[in-house]
């Protein structure tokens, strides 16, 4: 069997791209650890760039890649359920911060939607893009549903959500230090509200309390944004 034949066989099997996904992540995670979790060396960003380069070089289409990567993607559901474990473990602290959390949720949720829409509009985005960008801070499945209702493109929203997550995960640490916010609960909650699951992943890398509050922030912001924008659509229609 020639090398080319072997490649043709392997490149269409899910095994190759599942292995590549795990391999890229292990490399990215090691790099992130080596630089002491410096936020710029975000493991999601590094792994994604490595895999994009690999797909480009090998001329592999995304659907072929995803056939292997879907097994990893699938774990997002169980991982969301698993957030209940740190939530219950830190229950006392969560309950103690209930009022600040709800206040921050209301203000943060409105800021996320209104500032994204206003800035996109000011910078000349078309209406489809504006509708697609409105739910950008919300976890992907909720964001795609909201986008569709607003007249946006769910597939585009999925990308904007991912980009928002990566941007949030990279800027959260320096930004919080700059703003002088040292409390883990506040930092984590902001990461979850602004940058959903990828912000939550960053928070768990830094501190378990931050991770817990990020998970709550992500869940609550998904629900509240769906409600706010859902009501807005019903009201305007």
């Amino acid at each position: 069997m020639s090398v080319i034949e072997l490649w043709v066989y392997l490149s269409t099997s899910p095994l190759l791209w599942l292995t590549a996904t795990l391999g890229a992540y292990v490399i990215a995670d090691r790099l992130s650890q080596r630089v002491d979790r410096n936020p710029i060396a975000n493991p999601v960003l590094i792994a994604v760039l490595l895999l994009m380069a690999l797909l480009k070089i090998s001329g592999t289409a995304f659907p072929v890649y995803f056939e292997g990567a879907q097994f990893v993607h699938f774990m997002l559901g169980p991982a969301t359920v698993a957030l209940a474990v740190p939530l219950v473990q830190n229950f006392a602290e969560v309950r103690r911060n209930l009022v600040p959390m709800l206040a921050a949720l209301a203000v943060g949720s409105l800021t996320a939607v209104s500032s994204a829409v206003a800035i996109a509009w000011l910078l000349g985005a078309d209406t489809t893009l504006i509708a697609s960008i409105a739910p950008k801070s919300v976890t992907t499945p909720i964001a795609m549903g909201i986008s569709e209702r607003l007249g946006g493109l769910p597939a585009v929203t999925a990308i904007l959500v991912i980009l928002t997550g990566i941007i949030g995960a990279v800027i959260v640490t320096p930004l919080m230090n700059l703003a002088g916010i040292r409390d883990w609960a506040a930092r984590g909650f902001a990461a979850g509200v602004s940058a959903h699951g990828i912000g939550t992943a960053r928070a768990f890398l830094v501190n378990p309390v931050a991770g817990t509050f990020a998970g709550i922030g992500m869940g609550l912001n998904g629900v509240i944004t769906a409600l706010i924008l859902g009501l807005a659509v019903a009201f305007l229609a």
């Binding site: 992540y25 999601v44 895999l51 991912i162 980009l163 768990f204």
Partner: peptide, 20 residues
């Protein structure tokens, strides 16, 4: 649960590659 959450970043990689 903690094992999954420690590696939460991994789970966003396939969707991230979807940006292409």
């Amino acid at each position: 649960a903690h094992g999954i959450l420690r590696n939460l970043s991994l789970l966003f990689v396939p969707a991230g590659v979807g940006v292409v």
